[in-house]
C-alpha cells in the first residue's frame, strides 16, 4: 500500500509571499542610491573603523570576563549560609540594577571630580602611597569598570538561577561522598548549572557587545563613536551606520556560533545522544537527498514489502 503524506499548500503560499518581500528588499538595497554602497565599501575596512572595532571587542571582552568573575562570587555569596554575605550580595545587585548604565558610566568618568587622589594606607590613618585618580582610571578604564560592575549584577542573577536549577540530590550526593566544598561547586554544580546559565549568559554578552556603543558618551573611540565622527565630517549618515550595523551583525553571528558549540559541550550526559551540529545536519540531509534520488525507481515496491511482512 502506498503512503500519501499530508500536503501543506499554505506553507508554499507563505514561502512565496516571504520570497517576494525579500526580493523587493534586496532589490531596493541594490538600486536605491541612498544606501551609497561605494562609501560603505570605502569605510567598512578603513583602519580607523577597524581600530574602533578593536576597542569595542576589548570593552566587551573585559566587561564580560570581569563581570562574570564578579558575578560568580556574588552568586556564591548569595547562596552561602552566611546572612552577612547574602545581604552584601543582595545589596550589590539591588544597587547596580537600580542605576542606569549610562548614569553609572558618567559617574566613573567623573570620579576624579569627587576624589582627586586615591590613598592606600591605614584607614583613618597615614597614607602609604597616593595616586592621581585620573592616572589610575583613564576613560577606557572607567568604561571597563562601569560595564563590568553593571554586568556583574546581572551575571550574578543568571548564575544563581542556573545553580538553583541543579537538582538538590546532586549536592546531597556530593556532600555524602565527602567531596570538598570548592570542588562540589566547580566540578559538580557549575557544569550542570551551565545548561541553564549559557543561553542567558550569551544574551548578556551579545547585549553588552552592542551596549558598548553607550560608551560613546564618554568620547571613547569605539565603533559607534568612530562612525559618528566620520559621518559628522562627511555627512554620509546612512552608509556609515551600515558600516557599524554590519560589523555588529558579523560579530554577533560569530558569538552565536560559539554559543551553539559551548552549549553542545555542556549538554554531555543530559541527552541520550548529542544533537547534530548544523554541518552534520547539512551532510545528512544531502546524503538523504542523494539516496532518495538513487532509490526512486524501486521506491514503489518498498512499502508493499513492508506491508506484506
Amino acid at each position: 500500500m502506498r503512503v500519501v503524506p499530508v500536503r501543506h499548500p499554505w506553507r508554499w503560499v507563505g514561502i512565496a509571499v516571504v520570497l517576494v518581500l525579500a526580493a523587493q528588499f534586496a532589490h531596493g538595497l541594490a538600486t536605491n542610491p541612498g544606501w551609497d554602497w561605494p562609501t560603505f565599501a570605502k569605510y567598512f575596512a578603513a583602519s580607523s573603523v577597524i581600530s574602533a572595532l578593536g576597542t569595542t571587542v576589548k570593552l566587551t571582552l573585559y566587561g564580560t570576563l570581569l563581570g562574570f568573575a564578579l558575578g560568580i562570587v556574588l552568586a556564591a555569596m548569595r547562596l552561602s549560609k552566611s546572612p552577612f554575605l547574602q545581604v552584601v550580595s543582595f545589596s550589590y545587585v539591588w544597587a547596580f540594577r537600580s542605576i542606569p548604565l549610562i548614569v553609572q558610566l558618567l559617574f566613573w568618568f567623573n570620579i576624579a571630580y569627587l576624589y582627586q587622589t586615591l590613598q592606600f594606607g591605614v584607614p583613618f590613618g597615614p597614607a602609604l602611597f597616593t595616586v592621581n585618580t585620573n592616572d589610575l582610571f583613564g576613560p577606557l578604564g572607567a568604561a571597563v569598570l562601569g560595564l563590568a560592575l553593571h554586568q556583574a549584577a546581572y551575571a550574578a542573577e543568571i548564575i544563581r538561577g542556573g545553580i538553583l536549577s541543579v537538582d538538590a540530590g546532586q549536592l546531597e550526593a556530593a556532600a555524602a561522598l565527602g567531596i570538598p566544598r570548592r570542588r562540589q561547586f566547580f566540578k559538580i554544580v557549575i557544569p550542570q548549572a551551565m545548561r541553564g546559565i549559557l543561553p542567558n549568559a550569551a544574551n548578556e554578552v551579545i547585549s553588552l557587545f552592542k551596549g558598548t556603543s553607550i560608551v560613546s558618551v564618554m568620547a571613547i573611540p569605539e565603533l559607534f563613536y568612530q562612525v559618528q565622527v566620520i559621518y559628522g565630517r562627511n555627512g554620509r549618515v546612512v552608509p556609515l551606520l551600515m558600516v557599524a550595523t554590519v560589523w555588529y551583525i558579523v560579530l554577533t553571528t560569530l558569538l552565536s556560533i560559539v554559543q551553539y558549540y559551548v552549549e553542545r559541550h555542556y549538554a554531555k550526559g543530559s541527552a541520550r545522544s548529542l544533537p547534530p551540529t548544523p554541518w552534520q545536519k547539512i551532510r545528512r540531509g544531502w546524503s538523504r537527498v542523494r539516496r532518495a534520488a538513487a532509490a526512486t525507481p524501486s521506491f514503489a515496491h518498498a512499502p508493499e514489502r513492508g506491508a506484506a511482512g
Partner: peptide, 20 residues
Amino acid sequence: LHQRSEIGFVFQNFNLFGHL
C-alpha cells in the same frame, strides 16, 4: 566531609552525577 568520606551512602534516587 572527611568523616562522611568513610561512610558510604546510597540514595533512593541514585543521585549519580549526570554530567560525568
